[in-house]
């Protein structure tokens, strides 16, 4: 009889062992719901937000980090929330400003000139970097590369960052050559920081990148910069200005201008500017040194 009991106990044990694998009760969800969810407003009540659009020349996440801080600081200065809108290209940003979907924007000089020409885009402030309102673009290669001049890049793979903003004809034209057929392979990398990384990691042998971005990366990720070297540069162009629609409320325009021009006056503003690699914002004076448009106009070549 005890043998029978032992056998029954073993059998029950085996069954219980199997039963132990059952998990806790899971919460129930209905995948085939008949009604849509109730829409609840997530907008924060209060003053209307200022919409700040940025045409990024860097990767969106890096851009979000940097311009997010700037937008936040701007919001603190004007006492209104600032909603950051990121766009890949200046035409998109210009469209936002033109359609008044953005109140204020920052974009490359070439985009500014295009906007000014199209609908009278107004520049409020220009960033000053290392005491200058203009910065050239650089031709960079790997630090270990034997290429010393842009002319030696013939037959190599070359990356253009942000082509709409890039001074395309420049690179080799300065040495009296067109680049069609000059490079073995021509790549388009939509952001300057990624183009620098492509050079640093040996994906391409050279790239034309924005000077501001290159310098800022020297602050935030110096190891990437150490892996590259500059072998040439373009003429300096106006740093990306802060622009508004010409019909923007004058009071708001002035408020924004004051805010940008006084960023360097307080500790918080300086910290944000330092992260962006900017000394301060200054009012634009005279004709900006914009990059030429696709038709070769609107920019001044040095």
């Amino acid at each position: 009889m005890s043998v029978l009991r032992a056998g029954a106990a073993v059998f029950l044990g085996v069954l219980l062992l199997g039963g132990c694998s059952r998990q806790d009760e899971a919460p129930r969800v209905r995948l085939w719901a008949l009604a849509p969810p109730e829409v609840t407003s997530v907008e924060v009540p209060g003053a209307a937000a200022i919409r700040f659009a940025v045409a990024l020349t860097i990767s969106p996440q890096e851009g979000y980090r940097l311009y997010g801080d700037l937008a936040e600081a701007l919001g603190e200065k004007v006492g209104r929330p600032v909603h950051l809108i990121l766009r890949r290209t200046f035409p998109e940003t210009n469209d936002l400003v033109r359609s008044r979907e953005a109140d204020v924007a920052q974009l490359c000089s070439r985009g500014f000139l295009q906007g000014r020409r199209d609908f009278g885009l107004v520049a409020l402030a220009v960033p000053v970097v290392k005491g200058r309102k203009t910065t050239p673009s650089y031709v960079v290669v790997s630090a270990e590369s034997e290429v010393a001049r842009p002319g030696e890049l013939e037959g190599k793979a070359f990356a253009f960052a942000d082509p709409p903003c890039a001074p395309e004809p420049f690179v080799v034209a300065r040495e009296g050559q067109r680049h069609d057929g000059f490079f073995r392979r021509k790549l388009t990398i939509p952001s300057h920081d990624r183009a620098i990384r492509a050079v640093a990691e040996g994906l391409v042998e050279g790239a034309l990148v924005d000077g501001l971005v290159y310098r800022r990366l020297g602050l935030t990720d110096p190891r990437q910069i150490e892996k590259t070297k500059i072998i040439g540069e373009t003429a300096p162009y106006m740093n990306p200005p802060i622009v508004v629609h010409p019909a923007l409320d004058t009071a708001l325009r002035e408020e924004l201008r004051r805010a940008f021009l006084s960023f360097h006056a307080d500790e918080g503003g300086r910290a944000v500017l330092a992260r962006l690699g900017i000394d301060r914002f200054e009012a634009p004076v005279g004709e900006p040194e914009g990059r030429p448009g696709p038709d070769g106009t609107g920019g001044r070549r040095r």
Partner: peptide, 11 residues
């Protein structure tokens, strides 16, 4: 298709 089932988001 048209909307996210309401149970899922808070689940």
């Amino acid at each position: 298709g048209h909307f996210l089932p309401p149970d899922l988001q808070p689940a």
